[in-house]
């Protein structure tokens, strides 16, 4: 079966972002970019399903700027067979991205879509659920375990109180949580091979979707800074401060 893996190019998770002086956004000039960590987990899960013989083809897709080709090449170095870039310089938002992905799903007809639960830039946590809604597919969000068998997929989900397992008919959408797997690194020969794998570039107009943002960002600010307090010398002093100064115990 075919798996579609949507991925996103975001700021590298090790970078501490800075807010621009004019409060128009965060400063991404000369900042290291990478594949969103949850998307790496999605690629890894697809590759493992292929290694198990459950999946026959992995198609990676990204909605983003031309430079997102780098992340698609990475996905192919990790094991995706081919990829599609829907190129746009708009700041694409989840609903628009989900509509573009729906158009790709209509063309590719995958039986499973695996994607990250959220991107670490916007922290929206929406795209997978929106894609599932638009395509009429069931969803298994925040997955920590995925088992495909007998035309169904069983997904164990990380929920606030613990774990929940649901069974979904295929085709289905799965969004990944951190503990689903530990992504591998791409080997040099695989990075070289990935350069020859097919990468299709499409325009949003080819898919008939409008990616214009419907939520506008008025301003972006630094969160209120917490300043360091005092060091206490002993447990006694700590208990005293908590009781008599902070009055929290």
């Amino acid at each position: 079966m075919k798996v579609l893996v949507p991925i996103k190019r975001v700021v590298d998770y090790n970078v501490k972002v800075r807010v621009k002086a004019d409060n128009s956004g965060v400063d991404l000039a000369n900042v290291k970019m990478a594949m969103n960590p949850f998307c790496e987990i999605a690629v890894e899960e697809a590759v493992r399903l292929k290694e198990k013989g459950v999946v026959t083809e992995i198609v990676a897709v990204s909605i983003g700027p031309k430079a997102a080709q780098e992340q698609l090449r990475t996905a192919m170095a990790l094991g995706a067979d081919r990829s599609i870039l829907v190129e746009t310089d708009e700041e694409a938002q989840p609903l628009g991205i989900a509509k573009a992905l729906k158009a790709i799903v209509d063309e590719e007809k995958p039986e499973l879509v695996i994607l990250g639960k959220q991107a670490i830039d916007g922290d929206n946590n929406q795209t997978g659920q929106m894609l599932a809604a638009l395509t009429g597919m069931p969803q298994g969000t925040f997955a920590s375990e995925v088992n495909v068998a007998d035309g169904k997929v069983k997904v164990t989900r990380e929920i606030d109180g613990g774990l929940q397992t649901v069974e979904l008919s295929l085709p289905a959408v799965v969004t990944t949580d951190l503990r689903l797997n530990e992504p591998r690194y791409a080997s040099l020969p695989n990075i070289m091979k990935a350069k020859k794998k097919p990468l299709d570039v499409k325009a949003p107009a080819d898919l008939g979707v409008d990616l214009a943002p419907r939520v506008t960002t008025e301003k972006v600010e630094m969160p209120p800074e917490r300043s360091a307090g005092v060091k206490v010398g002993s447990v006694d002093e700590l208990v005293d401060k908590l009781k008599n100064e902070a009055k929290v115990i």
């Binding site: 938002q93 609903l95 659920q129 929106m130 599932a132 809604a133 969803q139």
Partner: peptide, 23 residues
């Protein structure tokens, strides 16, 4: 913005063709 809300709300938004603002 619990795992319940995060799970179904974007689905509602997409079906209504309405944007969601998270958290």
């Amino acid at each position: 913005a619990t795992t319940t809300g995060k799970n179904f709300a974007p689905r509602v938004a997409a079906l209504l063709d309405a944007p969601q603002i998270s958290e």
